[in-house]
Design a protein around this nucleic acid. Sequence first.
DNA 1: GCCGATCTACGACTTTTGGCCGAGGCGGTG
DNA 2: CACCGCCTCGGCCAAAAGTCGTAGATCGGC
Lengths: 210, 210
Amino acid sequence: MAPTTRASVLLVDDHALMRTGVANIINQEADLQVVAEAGNGVEALEAYDRHHPDVTLLDLRMPVMEGVEVVRRLRERDPRARVIVLTTYDTDDEISRALKAGAKAYVLKDISADDLVTCIRDVLAGKSYLAPAAAAKLAEGVTRVQLTPRELASLRLMADGKSNKEIANELGISDRTVKTHLGHLFEKLGVTSRTEAVKVATRRGLVRLA
Amino acid sequence: MAPTTRASVLLVDDHALMRTGVANIINQEADLQVVAEAGNGVEALEAYDRHHPDVTLLDLRMPVMEGVEVVRRLRERDPRARVIVLTTYDTDDEISRALKAGAKAYVLKDISADDLVTCIRDVLAGKSYLAPAAAAKLAEGVTRVQLTPRELASLRLMADGKSNKEIANELGISDRTVKTHLGHLFEKLGVTSRTEAVKVATRRGLVRLA
DNA sequence: GCCGATCTACGACTTTTGGCCGAGGCGGTG
DNA sequence: CACCGCCTCGGCCAAAAGTCGTAGATCGGC
């Protein structure tokens, strides 16, 4: 039982309670050890540079810097960085973006402590892991919408309650053009009105209200 | 160090990970002990009946039964039930409804483990506790909107992407009347369009998208 | 250099939405 | 009873939104 070297874990979550809870679970394992915690993306990058952990547990949906962006930057500065996304939400957009950014695993917070530990060991062993729910969402997301930059920008402003004219002003284009973009957007989302579009876009993780 | 009687705690959260994390924290305290866990509202009521815990830690936003409803039912069957709401969200609507339903405390999951334990002891001692952020939201909510049943129903359907005509059909009234309800709603929310209304209503916790 | 995607924009049109009135019915309260 | 809040509905009108088709400009890839 001589712990030669425990694998080092970096914990990133904006909820202190979740951090200490998960830290407790992990530190109970003889082969794992939490070496640092971070409450947002910027802190996460700093902590990574200081400790170069073997694996990083990362919540998406954080203040200061978005989770997917953190994944990207971590992998930029260290292509071997192993990132496990641990979050509550499972929109197809977030899942696929996180995986594309280089996350090795995507698990939901309703996972059991045992399964989480197993997942960490799997990732340390070079495997990857997808939560069943996440896999299902991805599968249905074969029909994943590919929005153009303008469509996405229009969508975001629209979801913020802006009128076509206001959107046009902010984007520096004509309101006719906004109509064109939104028309294309509606077609891609399979809807016929803005409120419906906001609903579907929210469900898919394309926008975040509140 | 003879633990005369440790206060019993019931843990309700739909995330297994959060449950075991918090359970670890609580069980490390000599005067506290988790006696049961539940993953949704119905389980929570069953567990309460079996164990009659001294205090219940409850997440809002759960499947099967809404958290506020759980608070209400717990207090119904035992007016002395001490419920601490432990959640991630802090919309003024949820906070005030939870407190009105009889919750003794409202804390957010970004609380530290120490503060959570303190909060539990406070509640056991008969005190109550409001997270600063929650208190602030409540304060600004002096202007809390009071929607009529019809206004709320129209709002919900509208947020679901329905047109006035569709809302009218579902409610069995004229679309003119729907316009009236929505007009009043807009005035109360301080907006002039449906998408804006959806945004504000979501922020206030009046509706839940996704 | 051609093709496809994207962004831009217009006309013309229909439908929907939102604002501004008034008005009757109904149920509870002072 | 009179008042008030809520629900109901109507007309009218202006503005916004959504649908159709068309079309020039740009950019990147084959």
